[in-house]
Design a protein around this nucleic acid. Structure first.
Lengths: 229, 229
DNA sequence: CGGGGCCTTGACGTGATTCAATAAAGGTGG
DNA sequence: CCACCTTTATTGAATCACGTCAAGGCCCCG
């Protein structure tokens, strides 16, 4: 796949954030941006380092990781192609609150934050949009907090599967966005526990697992089952 | 204590959010606001209900609670007097992501969201400020996520105590912002566990506990001790 | 066919919860 | 001011969910 700026532009314009932006604002922003390629395992930015850019994921996979002093790691979010990330740090201090690490060969578009903020400054409509975006992330994190603190491994996994689920009232199948060890970290579990939980749900007849593909014959039944575990 | 609007105004003006606001913006906002009084246990707003107002806590205590289907509850944040809360919901959907419950006799000032957003619309500087505020909350939640997922009960409690700590390199004492059961829920623990952890740290000679007052002779030593637990 | 990720499975250990009983503190009315 | 009752906090024993450690199987690639 070509990942130069010309190819990326139309995809960038389709993101929720940039969809409404006029051409004369995007153009100079893009002129200052550049594509970066990463190997699996490469660190794009480290937690606490000063933030000068945000990113558009063109291809591959990025994990946003919060590490503790003990070396333990929690994946806060798994970034997918066509997602924007780290744009929210622009308005404060300017330090990344998480580490961004590629877990596959990856291409990102690096967009300078200062120019981005400047573009925003005189356009209340765009600012309004950014506010909505941050608000959405806030809701997402509150939901995550709830999942982590008051739900069991089963409930967390089921919630996660159902969030990936396009339709909620018919048989469907989903693909895990990364290898199981990464998904486990995303859910705050060890790979072993994830594996066990998956087989438990499978043996209850609620899902079928085929590598990264998970079939869900009846999402509602799955949700109901999770309530009692 | 009088809690009418006239008394509240100067306190409201001292909040980080409103400090920079010109009088002609605050005045109409306040004209549309009204004080509410709550008993301990009263629900100010429920998770998922449509959001028409945000609030300024004049006196008492409010817990922001995220509940799971099982009835388990996680306190996301303990609101203190002179704090603003729920202002971040304004920019999206308009549903509260958490439940707000008084855990003491409480007075809040109810401020209508629509008017607030209107005030913001034509004032990029204020919007910029709101963005910074949301960004800050985002960082806070990411930190919380890390605490919950990769830290032990000891580490969580110590982090929490040190965050309440005004000075970090001398002997100091802090007061827990609520009864221990509430603090426990805030930390994602049961009251029993909190009690045990407190005695463990106390017996290690790192704190002294006197009801809600906790003395910390050497905050740095406390932090160091937590690393290995 | 072999080697190396990736995933699964089992036995075991551990930290935190649960349940239950007790103790301490605080508020209330006599 | 004290007896009483309620709320809050502590402690102990049993249990459980999840993590850790270690071994083995699967699948894909050369």
């Amino acid at each position: 796949m070509e990942n130069n700026k010309e190819v990326l532009l139309p995809r960038l314009r389709q993101t929720p954030l940039f969809a409404a932006w006029p051409e004369d604002v995007i153009a100079p922003l893009l002129a200052q941006s550049r594509p970066l390629t990463l190997e699996s395992g490469d660190i794009l930015f480290a937690e606490g380092s000063s933030a000068r850019s945000f990113y558009f994921l063109a291809s591959g996979r990025i994990d946003l990781i919060a590490a503790a002093a003990t070396g333990q790691e929690k994946i806060v979010e798994i970034i997918q192609p066509d997602d924007l990330f780290a744009e929210a740090v622009a308005f404060l201090g300017g330090r990344y609150p998480v580490t961004a690490q590629a877990d596959a060969a990856t291409t990102v578009l690096e967009i300078p934050l200062d120019l981005f903020v400047e573009s925003l400054e005189q356009r209340p409509l765009l600012m309004r949009q950014m506010l909505a975006r941050l608000s959405m992330r806030l809701h997402f994190l509150v939901k995550e907090l709830r999942h982590l603190s008051v739900e069991s491994a089963e409930q967390r996994l089921v919630s996660y599967l159902l969030e990936l689920c396009p339709m909620v009232n018919g048989p469907t199948a989903i693909e895990l966005p990364a290898k199981k060890a990464v998904v486990a970290a995303r859910l705050g579990l060890t790979p072993e526990t994830l594996s066990r939980v998956l087989t438990r749900i499978r043996k209850a007849g609620l899902i079928e697992v085929e590598r990264r593909i998970i079939a869900i014959p009846d999402p509602l039944a799955l949700r109901r089952w999770a309530e009692g575990h």
